[in-house]
Design a binder for these strands. Structure first.
Length: 827
RNA sequence: GCCGAGGUGGUGGAAUUGGUAGACACGCGGGACUUAAAAUCCCGUGGUAGCAAUACCGUGCGGGUUCGAUUCCCGCCCCCGGCACCA
């Protein structure tokens, strides 16, 4: 018969916490150091909280509780990222207005979070779709606008035909819409962008940030910096008569310039129409049309053959004056570099394939370096692999030689290494004003406008007289109208376009007739600054209080999924930097320490409604209680690794908590007091060290060992209290109950985390392994302070060791204190 | 293809400045209690051989360094995550 009724007890303590306002943080209290403990806020979906949320939030809350007990004034807020497509799509399907479904879902999820027993400060919450929040999202937009960092331009953009909206680059995954998985196509549309590119270099710097290496690498990769040169090619006809047009290309391999035997422009390149000769106009037009229709998936298919057509135009290679043909091909991307490349068929995979297909000339200008010099390869920056080129000279025989080497057929530059030539050739052409060093980034500006209803309206109006005008800050919020027919019309326009009362307005500058911008903002804009808002959540006249942000930010610990590495986490850094540059905040980086939780799968697959494999935590919480469920999730494995869900072992945790509860009620010390102290202090040491690095699984294992051993020794009052404190962050409800039972003062969370005493941990004796020729032959127990000779003698005396030493010549004796003894004998 | 993280019992996982592999838990086998079952408690549990002592094998595969390798080095294989014609 279990003594501990988890479900009832948890209700009791949740009510007490609520009544005593235990988890309302006094943000003005600086008697203790502040600690801002943040998790990525959820989207209030109709699926409610699933196991993945718990897997993220429960350990994050345990961390907050731990830091509180360590003496910090912990601020742990929670909110809802409530704008976005799911609510709108749900509304289209069912007719339930997003404001209704969102408020229901928020209510239900708050209830779940309450039952989890988290210490969120609900007085400081945000819901991004509420006017008192999105007013300030619009304010953020205006800050960027005023600085020239928000702009509108017509561009080919990613279009999801199913969601009927454009997508940011970051939201296109494998050529498909991140949300609905539909193939993404291109559309020419006028859209709003944020100039995140201007911050590319700063975003590459992670100095002072305690972030996972892999996340930093992912961002660096996404930003994609590469250094090279721009080279200007003058255009001409086949006879070499200059047309006056120029095309600039970007290359990281200007050392191969003498081998540039043709040039390729992206089909969308601005000059294509102008330079195409009459003879080729039809072909070119057809090719452009064909490219345009293709989705990104088709265009980037791996084994896809390269295609392209001639323009009839020619260009002059500035290095050797050769007249080379100009082609267009869709393997050149208009979005990267200058949208044009110099093609070096002899030293580039893509150019080589293209040249072979269309019979274009190939000119070798780089030879592999001889053995003694050591090949300088493309990999040299990464440190490894430089030797490989020499080992396998045949490997390049059927493809182009793409590594660094020694220049040949390159005029006065012949004989230089690629590295030297990159510098010298650029300098040489720089004098003639036809080249310069430059840097390129893969990162593109952030497309923030969406042709959807459920988002923050972009605060811009278009006046017949004044043109594009920003809505003055005092007129915010630009309210999102409620009564809207939000079914997509397939015209690529926002549903707000149909709301006359919204569209027609007065120009804030001249008072004349004006129309509102009808696009709304990407939800990632909402989430790019919410962490600034929490401490000032109730403020109605400002987005955030300067004093509050100064005192409480940056975020000390940020916990959330790695899937946000190149989206939310990049955007938030960018917006934070912009607000810093504008003087609104005094720090550049928003998140000091970052930890990702792993993903929870079901039968190896990501949980999703469509697969029907979503597991709800509610049934387990009702049966076992929150503590057991939290502990079970943490016990599954390391926090950052996730795992496949099954409920098989949950009884083990339930048993453990029951045993823990009973242990505290065992009154007599039947064993040795010193042994109990040693056990306790070893446990304090282990649990503390494990929690510090988010290894909750081994912290729990240590507590289990503690229980298993302590049940044999018994308990004393001191140990009872310390053990209760130790389990408190992990099983908060159980700990409160026990704390009350053992006569502790106040809430267990108002007490200090126990500190271990190294002196109490010291053991009298230690068991060593004894090896002979590397094989374990025996174990020997010796006094901790024993000297080497004593230990060796004891080891040799072991029968199973003596057996192997007998009659053999002892070559070597190795003694590793507290670990092992190893004998080496001649064979 | 490139970048990153992994591969350990029937299962989830412990242990890496090289030092007794398999902590802890699930499951399984046996026992106690019970009329019986559940719950609980005790014992056992990497594989092979053996009554046992013990021996041999064993951390994805193949080599290497070392008295000693899950840990370091070289070469592969397989899963997972990210990027992907970026000139």
């Amino acid at each position: 018969m279990p003594l501990y009724n988890a479900v009832e007890n948890e209700k009791k303590w949740q009510k007490i916490w609520e009544d005593t306002k235990l988890h309302r943080t006094n943000l003005e209290d600086f008697s203790k150091p502040k600690y801002y403990n943040l998790v990525m806020f959820p989207y209030p979906s109709g699926d409610k909280l699933h196991i993945g949320h718990w897997y993220n939030y429960a350990p994050a809350d345990s961390w907050g509780r731990y830091m509180k007990m360590k003496g910090f004034n912990v601020f742990e807020p929670q909110g809802f990222d409530s704008f976005g497509l799911p609510a709108e799509n749900y509304a289209i399907k069912t007719g339930v207005h997003p404001t209704v479904s969102i408020s229901q879902n928020v209510g239900y999820m708050r209830e779940q979070l309450h039952k989890m027993g988290t210490m969120y400060d609900w007085d400081k919450s945000v819901v991004t779709s509420e006017p008192d929040y999105y007013q300030w999202t619009q304010w953020v937009f205006l800050q960027l606008y005023k600085k020239g960092l928000a702009y509108r331009k017509n561009a080919p953009v990613n279009w999801c035909p199913s969601c009927q909206t454009v997508l940011a680059n970051e939201q296109v995954v494998d050529g498909r819409c991140e949300r609905c998985k539909h193939e993404v196509t291109k559309r020419d549309l006028t859209q709003w962008f944020f100039k995140i590119r201007d911050y590319a270099e700063r975003l590459l710097n992670f100095e002072g940030l305690d972030w996972p290496e892999r996340t930093k690498l992912m961002q660096q990769n996404w930003i994609g910096k590469s250094t090279g040169s721009q080279v200007v090619f003058e255009l001409c006809n086949e006879k070499g008569e200059k047309s006056g047009e120029k095309v600039t290309v970007f290359t990281t391999r200007i050392d191969t310039l003498f081998g540039a035997t043709y040039m390729v422009l992206a089909p969308e390149h601005a000059l294509v129409e102008k330079i195409t000769t009459d003879k080729h106009k039809k072909n070119v037009a057809e090719y452009i049309e064909k490219t345009r229709k293709e989705t990104d998936i088709a265009r980037s298919a791996e084994d896809r053959e390269k295609t392209g057509v001639e323009t009839g135009a020619f260009a002059i290679n500035p290095a050797n004056g050769e007249i080379i043909p100009v082609w267009i091909a869709d393997y050149v991307l208009v979005t990267y570099g200058t949208g044009a490349v110099m093609a070096v068929a002899a030293h580039d995979e893509r150019d080589s394939a293209f040249a072979k297909k269309y019979g274009l000339p190939i000119q070798e200008v780089v030879a592999p370096t001889g053995g003694s010099l050591g090949a300088v390869t493309k990999n040299e920056a990464t440190g490894g692999g430089a030797e490989k080129a020499d080992q396998n000279p045949q490997s390049q025989s059927d493809g182009p030689f793409t590594e660094y080497g020694i220049l040949i057929n390159s005029g006065e530059f012949t004989g230089l290494t690629s590295e030297e030539a990159r510098k010298k050739i650029t300098e040489w052409l720089e004098e003639k004003k036809s080249a310069n060093f430059t840097v390129n980034y893969k990162l593109r500006d952030w497309l923030v406008s969406r042709q959807r209803y459920w988002g923050a309206p972009i605060p811009i109006v278009y006046c017949d007289k004044c043109g594009e005008v920003a809505v003055p800050e005092k007129d915010l919020p630009v309210l999102l109208p409620k009564d809207v027919d939000f079914t997509p019309k397939g015209d690529g326009k926002s549903p707000l376009n149909t709301v006359e009362s919204f569209v027609h307005t007065k120009c804030p500058e001249c008072g004349g007739v004006a129309k509102r911008e009808v696009d709304t903002m990407d939800t990632f804009v909402d989430s790019s600054w919410y962490f600034l808002r929490y401490p000032s959540a109730k403020m109605s006249d400002r987005p955030f209080d300067t004093g509050m942000t100064k005192n409480w930010l940056p975020v000390d610990m940020y916990i959330g999924g790695p899937e946000h590495a190149c989206m939310h986490l990049l955007y938030a850094r960018f917006i934070n930097m912009v607000l810093h540059d504008l003087g609104h905040i005094d720090f550049e980086e928003p998140f000091k320490r970052l930890i990702h939780q792993g993903m929870i799968t079901k039968d190896g697959a990501k949980m999703s409604k469509s697969k029907g494999n979503v597991v709800s935590p509610d049934q387990f919480v009702e049966k076992y209680g929150s503590d057991t469920f939290r502990l079970y999730l943490m016990f599954m494995g390391p926090f950052s690794e996730g795992g496949d869900w099954n409920d098989k072992g949950i009884t083990g945790i339930a048993r453990f908590l029951e045993r823990f509860y009973q242990l505290i009620h065992v009154n007599e010390l039947v064993g040795d007091k010193a042994a109990l102290q040693r056990l306790l202090h070893k446990t304090i040491k282990k649990v503390t060290a494990d929690i510090e690095v988010f290894h909750f699984n081994t912290a729990i294992a240590a507590l289990m060992e503690f229980v298993n051993n302590a049940l044999k020794i018994g308990m004393d009052d001191e140990t009872r209290k310390a053990a209760t404190l130790l389990i408190a962050p992990l099983a908060p409800h159980l700990a409160e109950e026990l704390w009350e039972k053992v006569g502790g003062e106040g809430s267990v969370f108002e007490n200090s985390w126990p500190v271990f005493d190294p002196a109490l941990i010291v053991e009298d004796s230690v068991q060593l392994g004894v090896q002979v020729n590397g094989k374990l032959r025996a174990q020997v127990t010796v006094d901790v302070g024993a000297d080497k000779d004593t230990v060796l003698a004891a080891a040799k005396a072991e029968p199973n060791v003596a057996k192997y030493l007998e009659g053999k010549k002892l070559v070597k004796e190795i003694y590793v204190p507290n670990k092992l003894v190893s004998f080496v004998v001649a064979v």
